[in-house]
Design a protein around this nucleic acid. Structure first.
Lengths: 203, 203
DNA sequence: CTTTTTACTGAACACTGTTTACCTTTGTGC
DNA sequence: GCACAAAGGTAAACAGTGTTCAGTAAAAAG
């Protein structure tokens, strides 16, 4: 019986090894520039082997997205200590920007890459995506409930905040910000976060 | 002499034909799914010929981006009739959303696709990108000058508005909006536009 | 009528994701 | 202990990609 267990463990280990190396390579070289053959060479197995553990490259991407979300959620942990919802919202924006600008590749993997995202809702890896958005929504709800906001449409407020953050980050990462001809972009993004929270919420 | 002119004209025509077909195919099948061979087959020339007119696929993308920007700028024309800058800003957001949701593929081509955008500033095709942003900035400046705004940082205001719009559109187009579990997304986006303009500007 | 220039071709190169026929190596029933 | 089956891994093959370049055919120039 122990033999079966060992083989099971070895399989799990190889699965984890593939995930680990793929994550590293996706981050370093980008998703499109990382081929299955390159991953295979790195882990010193043949190409076909990867397909025994992950159905295809997309499935591998989903797994890596799971890793990325875990990483992101870890950044958000300090929020638990902030009791004032408006302050929490402000801090959340800060962390969002900090993480996204520090880890543009993780960000791409999670929020930008095309892939058959149609099946997003089905995939376990994206439960953590919902988790993330629900933190935002809960906090906004708390702001509204405690009378910190004029506008009371929680869905709209949440989506607006997320969109603004996401927009800033992607315009920067995809070099579209260049047409703006502005220096200290990162500083300005943080200011915009302050500006939005300060305008829509009063503590 | 006339012969040289004719040949010059013919070259220009072929260049235009390549651009036209490439644009159509990029829009229908996406940039990544359109190969140089497929374009060649469509125009009934060999692959190599395209490279005599466009240095590479990126150069072709830049040209198509130019077409897309022209298209976008055309949508913006009705703005010239709106004299009230706040009203113009509101309408601009409406048009931005309308165009982006009607032409998600054009939008991708202009604002999302990776490619060596590092050289954005050098490329003639992107002068129209700057043109677009400068319309926004000028309008925001007018709002501030005429005392319609509390916040007076024109750069920050402009970037915030653009980011929010861009964020909403891309989160929708890349299916990340699904985690929000909301219906009538398009309606909500328009509401958010109203909400933002209404909160930051008073007419 | 030759020579040069021009426009164009398509095979070749080095890649890509994915499939599949083919081993080995291991485990099981007799 | 031995035949048989199953599992795990392999590498060649398929159909595609962007790009280059030696070669060709037709037109223009001398």
């Amino acid at each position: 019986m122990s033999v079966k267990q060992r083989r099971e463990r070895e399989k799990e280990e190889l699965r984890a090894l593939i995930l680990k190396e793929a994550t590293q390579m996706f981050l370093k070289e980008g998703y499109e520039n990382t081929s299955m053959r390159k991953i295979a060479k790195k882990i010193e197995y043949s190409v076909g082997t990867i397909y025994l553990y992950y159905k295809n490259k997309d499935e591998l991407l989903y797994a890596v997205q799971g890793v990325a979300f875990d990483h992101f959620l870890n950044y958000m942990k300090p929020l638990m200590d902030v009791t004032n919802p408006v302050e929490r919202l402000r801090k959340m924006g800060e962390i969002y920007l900090f993480f996204s600008l520090q880890n543009p590749d993780y960000y791409d993997l999670m929020f930008v890459i095309e892939s058959p995202m149609n099946a997003v809702k089905e995939h376990e890896s994206w439960s953590r995506g919902e988790q993330l958005f629900s933190i935002l929504k809960t906090t906004v709800q708390a702001c509204v409930d405690q009378g910190h906001a004029q506008e009371k449409n929680v869905n709209a407020l949440s989506f607006m905040i997320w969109s603004a953050m996401h927009g800033m980050v992607t315009l920067k990462n995809k070099c579209r910000i260049q047409v703006m001809d502005v220096e200290h972009e990162d500083q300005m993004m943080r200011e915009i976060n302050e500006m939005m929270i300060g305008t829509f919420f009063q503590s």
